[in-house]
Design a protein around this nucleic acid. Sequence first.
DNA 1: AATGAATGAGATTTCATTCAT
DNA 2: GATGAATGAAATCTCATTCAT
Lengths: 188, 188, 188, 188
Amino acid sequence: MNQERSKKTQEKLLVAASQVFHTQGIANTTLQDVARASGVPLGNVYYHYKTKNDLVHAVIQAHKADIQAGFDLVQENPDPKERLMVFIQNGRKNKLTLQEYGCPYAGIAYDLEKEKNPLAEEAGSLLEMWIEFAQQQFTLLGKAKEAKELAETYITTLQGAYLLAHNSGAKQFLERQLNRLELWLKAQ
Amino acid sequence: MNQERSKKTQEKLLVAASQVFHTQGIANTTLQDVARASGVPLGNVYYHYKTKNDLVHAVIQAHKADIQAGFDLVQENPDPKERLMVFIQNGRKNKLTLQEYGCPYAGIAYDLEKEKNPLAEEAGSLLEMWIEFAQQQFTLLGKAKEAKELAETYITTLQGAYLLAHNSGAKQFLERQLNRLELWLKAQ
Amino acid sequence: MNQERSKKTQEKLLVAASQVFHTQGIANTTLQDVARASGVPLGNVYYHYKTKNDLVHAVIQAHKADIQAGFDLVQENPDPKERLMVFIQNGRKNKLTLQEYGCPYAGIAYDLEKEKNPLAEEAGSLLEMWIEFAQQQFTLLGKAKEAKELAETYITTLQGAYLLAHNSGAKQFLERQLNRLELWLKAQ
Amino acid sequence: MNQERSKKTQEKLLVAASQVFHTQGIANTTLQDVARASGVPLGNVYYHYKTKNDLVHAVIQAHKADIQAGFDLVQENPDPKERLMVFIQNGRKNKLTLQEYGCPYAGIAYDLEKEKNPLAEEAGSLLEMWIEFAQQQFTLLGKAKEAKELAETYITTLQGAYLLAHNSGAKQFLERQLNRLELWLKAQ
DNA sequence: AATGAATGAGATTTCATTCAT
DNA sequence: GATGAATGAAATCTCATTCAT
């Protein structure tokens, strides 16, 4: 009933906000934009999220949940190396979005840091989740000692590749760097 | 005379704008901010740059000149590999700024792309200059065939490292990735 | 409800804007002026009309509707000649306003043309509506062949009289020219 | 020497100002516009005219002188009726300018009246000069009693025709009304 | 509770006028 | 005296947030 309706509205807001924050950046996104994108009337946005920052916070939490869900999913694969391969493959699948808008997690963290938003740290944890996850996988691969640096290398390459793919128009760039990362990963 | 006075004011504006655009992001920076940071009265900013975008454009051009000057400077070193080493070393020197504010060139390109600013492409060329430069060096090293991919790898690593260093608080992160890049470069 | 509230505000804005545009000219009228004259807070003006030009456009449309309503009203009179007489009589009724501020339709068209406003053409149609209307009446009077020129003469005289009445202080000027026009019209 | 140079600069300013005031309207014309159009540096404009209004005043005076010069010129023609014909012919000669920008004298008077400029009255005298002149000619034609009304009719028609020609795009409009005025004048 | 309208602080921009050399 | 630069008040426009129904 009402609670369900409320849930749905909140869900619509989160989905729309994630999207427009990603594609336009947070500073360039008005709550009107979010309202329009979600089909929720502006006044109603404030019913669910008292401030723009509250909505940003909710989006970050949703991202965290998404990321964790992704980790949970690949846990079904018993091979830690293959788990890491999955995310390289995801990069290929999302190539067009990544080229056009960059990595959403890096983007939100960057945006908030620039506006000295207190949520910046929270957003920063989005990429840190990846490092931790990667580190765990390398540890499982029997490389406990170098796991941290390997994880950092893995994420650095992914993020560097996303950044450059987003920055430049070079169509094959992302593909080439993902291939290289894959080879490197296989060699570990 | 007047021309000198004008040059000086414009220089002050460019320096201040580069700085605040880098530290706050373009969208979060008002021309009042630039005016204050430069000591130039707001009305006068518009005498020198008719719009905020004109100022942004001038900053991009200044960045291009700076980058080119850096390339020219390292040309004095006859060894292409050492030239590329120089910029790794620069990353170490600028560690604190990079950690706190990220790479200014990537930042301005990202900001403009998000606000669908027509200058985005121009800003994107800032990183492309690096790729080209690196490619030339690898070519000089007798690796013409792989030069492009090597250059991309070099820049991807640098930018990935800057991005993650900026994102996370991890103090040794940048150092570790720069060291790794250095080893990789030596091995080429 | 909300829609009614909105209509009312928009109506207040239109009425106030028509008036101040007429009395001060468009270029000399700030939206603060309109806000004050209408009792609507400045920020809210922009809720209803996204730009000053949008408001100007709405005022032109309102003028068109007013003019058309005037035409519809005189259609009740079966004699085309008398219909045209009505507007001469209207000139007498509005003598003071016309002397002090000129013809609002000519004024808005002139203002927009001078500022190279794209709406200038739209505003120009205000006077063209009068020519067309007059032409129709002369056609109904059995003067289809000369109707166009007669209509132009009718409007030229009216507008010339309004212009001069507005320009000079001569109190009887408008009266004299309207009388002359009336005689001319009777003779057709 | 210097005085001559000053005269020349002042002349350049007057010519340029007359022109841009006419084509853009006074409110839409900045002193930068005048400076650029005249080739005189902005700072120098203020050396010759302490305020924008001073320049407007000078332009009005120049217009007065021009008009008077026109009157003086046609005095060479012994026939008062032909003198009035000359100005109808002038309307034909200046057709394109009149269609595109309207009558400069009516325009400046209108502009100043709208901005409640104290010079409005002074500008209003520009058209009054025409009425007086026309009245004199009709008096010379032995129509002393009706001279005033005939003069008003003459100017009303001219100004009405200019206004409508400026307002609408109708290419033949001005021609038709000037022909009609000519016939009317011949019949007097 | 739901929502279109209202509000006000602040951002960009313009420009007549003054300043400094 | 001549002139490019500087100034500040004011205009247009934006938008997070609050209000009123």
